[in-house]
Design a protein around this nucleic acid. Sequence first.
DNA 1: GCCCGCATGTAACTGGTTACATGATTGT
DNA 2: ACAATCATGTAACCAGTTACATGCGGGC
Lengths: 178, 178
Amino acid sequence: MSTTSTDLAVLGALSVEPMSGYALREAIRDVLGHFWSESFGQIYPALTSLEAEGFVERVEGSRPAASLFTITASGRRRLRELVREPLPSRPPRYGALLRLYFGRHLGQAGCFGIIDEMRVEAVASLATYAAIREEIAADTQHANDAPFWLTTLDLGERSARATVEWADEARRALGATK
Amino acid sequence: MSTTSTDLAVLGALSVEPMSGYALREAIRDVLGHFWSESFGQIYPALTSLEAEGFVERVEGSRPAASLFTITASGRRRLRELVREPLPSRPPRYGALLRLYFGRHLGQAGCFGIIDEMRVEAVASLATYAAIREEIAADTQHANDAPFWLTTLDLGERSARATVEWADEARRALGATK
DNA sequence: GCCCGCATGTAACTGGTTACATGATTGT
DNA sequence: ACAATCATGTAACCAGTTACATGCGGGC
């Protein structure tokens, strides 16, 4: 049994274009990565159960032993249903911030290490977001989806920029600390 | 067996002041809530094992059947150890953004609902952050910890403000969509 | 011929939450 | 007296990851 969250991610991705389970995972990691994640251990069982329910169909791809999964008409109805339901958001567990919160026991150098790491990560995110943004702009096939994709991307960019600005300020604020 | 993450959260909180397991959970929820969470099912076993290892001690509190947990000297050493180790950050699963990403299947009104909800949440966060900020400022007992607490709080505030600004822009951007 | 990337799948495990059982204390 | 809150603990469950087993296809 798979969760409705995973079903939504899978059906949603397949509504864009048919792909293999493997490609599905890559797409989720690379494109939805900044707010979502799925592992093989969820994707394959989800595909199996979605197939049994008639929401996706497996067609033989260009090479044997590989399948392309396509979303069916009832799968699209299911997708419209799922996207309407609120999803449980997982309570956050941001390790770096926990460590920073107890930074008094870590010392200034250690705190700077954490802050710098977060900054580097945020800057890297900004770079990948810019790449994704260009991909979306270049992709005329999915012009209908583009506004929504750009909207979620925009939040990622704003968060990342906020993190970079925070990092600089944090370094200054903790610089005064002994 | 408890995780080192939980041990860090518990030892860190007890390094500020002794409290009961119940109070520990409330403190984590109310103060660390925007980047961390622990449930009773983790806290109590963690306290038991930390006690067995000599990192915390249980002293009878004002009322029987209730214990105050205090951190020991070796517990403080353990805390300094733990805060130095990198913690695994849990991959994000932000349900609202997943739904918004597939917003084409949801329609404009549904998307606005999600965006507005996120905005309301962010505004509420800003209010609680402001309250926490005042608490920290008023708390002269823990002036040594204050800079670190304010730093993590600052990131929360920046993220929340970024979300509010994003929400307004998102509404405008998707307003054009049919 | 061999390694690497694509591809599918599952079993075991871990991390974490929820629900429940139990009871003391406080306030009304 | 009763309800609400404080308090401790555990067992069952669920979600999700990791590791493993297996094999095909394409490039070097």
